[in-house]
Nucleic acid binder design. Structure first.
Lengths: 240, 240
DNA sequence: CGGTCACTTGAAGTAGGTCAAATTACGTGG
DNA sequence: CCACGTAATTTGACCTACTTCAAGTGACCG
């Protein structure tokens, strides 16, 4: 009955809790613990044994992976309602990626065993977990396909559109992607390098599609980006 | 009690049934139906509404996806014990890919609702399902990373090694990948085109790493492929 | 005001994509 | 069993997208 530790009003429409009564929400959340993570700190690091899983209440988190060759790949950014470590914690494997707070974050965390017990006793919860994993699987698969078949320009356009959906904020100039977002970050999201990203953004900037700043991007003509994202390569030479 | 419709002895160590009693296995399998799918036929097509999910008993299946631009991507090959449509059927979304039998297949199939009911009544089953989805997620993520950071040659080496693990069969010459496997197939698995694959395979062939035939590959020196797969690019010019 | 960090831009090199054509294997029907 | 047609594969040549290196510019921080 402690509202500060049981923000059920907030989490009621989180996917993990959908279809659950408020009593169930209460007992599930009270089996966990509230965490606060400062920007730059990590919920967990890639390779660590996965003992905890979290659902974000507030703040944004960056999920990234480092390859054996030392290349970093940004897999995703997560915000409120999304789960961290759900997949792996329930599979008893080391975390395959690192989760870093890029803003002050609060989250509810459970130990793996606690969550497994909860799920065993509440199959709706287990199904919700499975749905979340499934969602992420689909996203991942789409990005895989993207990477396999599209050119950098299209992938970059899609990445921006995804980010806008997650972090877009209307301003008087256009739609700002409201997170710190360097060229390097975008490169790591799209499987290329910062030079390439810089060139493409510069081009779009001078074409009036976007405005760029230091670690930020604002979309001016989102529709044109959609056209780019859907490919349709420009007619190279006019065939009669 | 009909052994032909309830091959519990076979499925006992399938991941979906792990930790379940034979009574539970029995009641779960009997809620499903046995399917036989001939080579070239499909369990389901991409985009169809996902009403059924399957667990393969025998035979191999190819999972592929077609992009909006018409490019095909081979996501995976699945064999006995693996699930088809688990992710999507439980998420109430259209199948994101097509599942085609490449050998005579038998599988148990359930309607989505039947499986959801079973899982609601048996949370171990739900957890098993989640584990399977999690496994596939991890695989997908690794391949994503691969595609984002590695060159075609490495990706091809890895693809072959993966295929060997799934379909490798010792022969007197080496380890044969025992499925029909064209250059085009390999290209669609690694995000490149058949010309590129053909060139690389030819090179490896003349280096004695593999032997190739029409729609087949045999590994001779698997270890050398592992070296290639782990990258370590050849020293371009000897630095003192 | 100096230093660092993010970003830009140029130039050169390369992996890989594309197109075209030749070659080889396979299967079928005669 | 052979000849033919088709499909798989190889190979060459060219070209473009992308990477890499290098040098410079601009922005924020102390």
């Amino acid at each position: 009955m402690n509202p500060s530790l049981n923000p059920c009003d907030v989490i009621a429409d989180f996917p993990l809790f959908s279809g659950l009564s408020s009593e169930e929400c209460l007992s599930i959340t009270s089996a966990g613990r509230l965490f606060e993570v400062a920007p730059g700190e990590f919920f967990f690091h890639q390779g660590e044994d996965s003992t905890m899983l979290y659902v974000i209440l507030t703040g944004r988190t960056k999920l990234s992976q480092i390859t054996s060759e030392g290349n970093q790949v940004i897999v995703n950014y997560f915000g409120p309602g999304e789960g961290l470590g759900i997949i792996m914690a329930l599979n008893r494997m080391p975390y395959p990626l690192s989760a870093e707070a890029i803003e002050p974050c609060t989250a509810i965390g459970w130990s793996r065993d606690a969550m497994l017990d909860l799920m065993k006793g509440n199959s709706q919860l287990a199904l919700n977990g499975m749905n979340m994993v499934g969602q992420r699987f689909t996203q991942m698969q789409n990005r895989f396909q993207e990477l396999a078949t599209q050119r950098v320009e299209q992938r970059l356009a899609r990445a921006l559109l995804r980010l806008v959906r997650q972090f877009g904020r209307r301003t008087e100039k256009g739609i700002l992607i409201d997170i710190s977002l360097s060229r390097e970050d975008l490169a790591q999201m799209t499987g290329t390098n910062l030079y390439n990203v810089s060139r493409i953004l510069s081009k779009w900037d001078s074409d009036g599609l976007i405005t760029t700043g230091r670690k930020q991007v604002t979309l001016l003509k989102a529709h044109e980006l959609v056209v780019l994202a859907e490919d349709i390569p420009p007619p190279s030479h006019t065939p009669e």
